[in-house]
């Protein structure tokens, strides 16, 4: 890539928009996943009895079962949310930057 075309891209307003939006979005979702997972791990480390509480009166199923499943499902949903926006909005922005450069 030549210095000219590099400058043309980096000085493009849509490029700045793309980079800042995606960065923000990626880190927010990363943060969410970290909070969910390490929150789960810390509960196990410090308050593991919370997860062993019966789900309802007299049940063998504990609170930990739905909580564990929710962590698995949240991982899937978060990736889905990211792909939806990245393959739509972010790729459209990238496409517009490319077209503007030509």
């Amino acid at each position: 890539m030549t210095t000219d075309s590099l400058d043309a891209i980096t000085s493009h307003p849509l490029y700045a928009e793309l980079v800042s939006k995606r960065k923000r979005f990626g880190w927010i979702l990363t943060f969410l996943m970290m909070v969910i997972y390490y929150g789960f791990v810390l509960v196990i480390a410090y308050k593991k009895e919370w997860l062993a509480i019966p789900l309802y009166h007299g049940s063998i199923t504990t609170v930990g079962i739905p909580v564990g499943l929710a962590v698995i499902i949240s991982a899937f949903l978060l990736t889905g949310i990211y792909v939806y926006r990245a393959n739509g909005e972010f790729d459209d922005l990238t496409q517009r930057i490319r077209e503007n450069l030509q």
């Binding site: 880190w27 979702l29 996943m33 969910i36 997972y37 991982a75 978060l78 990736t79 990211y82």
Partner: peptide, 11 residues
């Protein structure tokens, strides 16, 4: 623990 690496890879 094995699963939660995937979203981070993605983001």
């Amino acid at each position: 623990g094995w699963l939660v690496g995937w979203p981070v890879i993605m983001f």
